[in-house]
Simulated assay, not measured.
Amino acid sequence: MAEQNNGTPSHIPTVIADELHVVYRVNGGKGGKGSATAALSRILRRGESPGVRKVHAVKGVSFTAYRGESIGLIGSNGSGKSTLLKAVAGLLPAERGTVYTHGQPSLLGVNAALMNDLTGEKNVILGGLAMGMSREQVRERYDGIVDFSGINEKGDFISLPMRTYSSGMAARLRFSIAAAKDHDVLMIDEALATGDRKFQKRSEERIRELRKEAGTVFLVSHNNKSIRDTCDRVLWLERGELLMDGPTDEVIKAYEKETGK
């Protein structure tokens, strides 16, 4: 079961990060060393040129997330929040340590699947299929996705190419597509910063529904109010290290005291 009768999350682990380290490598070319031939040569040698710069983005982070939890990630810019989500989603390899997941993690949004030259309507179908929904499920949920996004509140925008959308409209549609599916683990990066207060409210309500339906939700946001309204637990990262992990109010108070935000 997803929750106990008292409303607290049941102790079924969905994500375990064990001493996770993530390192980016940035190749810099000097005098032709950045050419495709040189890159291929480095791969074949399994070596790195002296021009490779390493960025240690996540440093030894450990935590266990449970089914039914909504977990906020806070920290200053460049603290490793988004990198951590990508590693949990399997989009970035671990340098050291391990991530275990129960079920399929989904990182919002479905940017890779949405295409600017296609209409919003076709992108809803494409995005739903990309997330593993059947054509039947996409058809059943199509009207709900469009209504939730508010895309058509000021005209028939869903029939227009996505290149005609503002960045806010596109982000709302991405959130609406991703939120239409029941996820084992849903990770949202700054989604609630998009749109007016009405849309943010709908988003927060949908996250609560997703929690009840079984999954675990991770939310990265610089908006402490969204974190307070949505999450019952917070991870605070700085410079890739986990400084604090605990109840939302406790962690945010410590964060605000330290940063003055």
Results as ranks from 00 to 15, higher is better:
residue 187 M to R: 08
residue 187 M to P: 02
residue 187 M to T: 10
residue 187 M to F: 07
residue 188 I to S: 10
residue 189 D to V: 03
residue 189 D to W: 06
residue 190 E to H: 05
residue 190 E to D: 07
residue 190 E to F: 05
residue 190 E to Y: 05
residue 190 E to N: 09
residue 190 E to K: 04
residue 191 A to T: 10
residue 191 A to E: 03
residue 192 L to G: 08
residue 193 A to S: 13
residue 194 T to S: 11
residue 195 G to L: 06
residue 195 G to T: 02
residue 195 G to N: 01
residue 195 G to Y: 01
residue 196 D to F: 04
residue 197 R to P: 02
residue 197 R to E: 14
residue 197 R to G: 09
residue 199 F to P: 02
residue 203 S to H: 07
residue 205 E to P: 02
residue 205 E to L: 12
residue 205 E to M: 12
residue 206 R to Y: 08
residue 207 I to H: 04
residue 207 I to R: 03
residue 207 I to E: 00
residue 208 R to S: 13
residue 208 R to P: 09
residue 208 R to M: 13
residue 208 R to K: 14
residue 209 E to W: 10
residue 210 L to T: 07
residue 210 L to F: 10
residue 210 L to V: 07
residue 211 R to W: 09
residue 212 K to P: 01
residue 213 E to W: 07
residue 213 E to K: 13
residue 214 A to F: 12
residue 215 G to E: 07
residue 215 G to F: 02
residue 216 T to L: 12
residue 216 T to C: 12
residue 216 T to S: 11
residue 217 V to S: 03
residue 217 V to L: 10
residue 217 V to I: 12
residue 217 V to K: 00
residue 220 V to E: 04
residue 220 V to R: 00
residue 220 V to W: 06
residue 221 S to C: 02
residue 221 S to H: 06
residue 221 S to F: 04
residue 222 H to G: 04
residue 222 H to C: 00
residue 222 H to Q: 09
residue 223 N to Q: 08
residue 224 N to A: 13
residue 224 N to C: 10
residue 225 K to F: 15
residue 225 K to Y: 15
residue 225 K to I: 14
residue 228 R to D: 10
residue 228 R to K: 10
residue 229 D to I: 06
residue 230 T to R: 00
residue 230 T to M: 01
residue 231 C to W: 04
residue 231 C to R: 05
residue 232 D to Y: 08
residue 232 D to T: 11
residue 232 D to K: 00
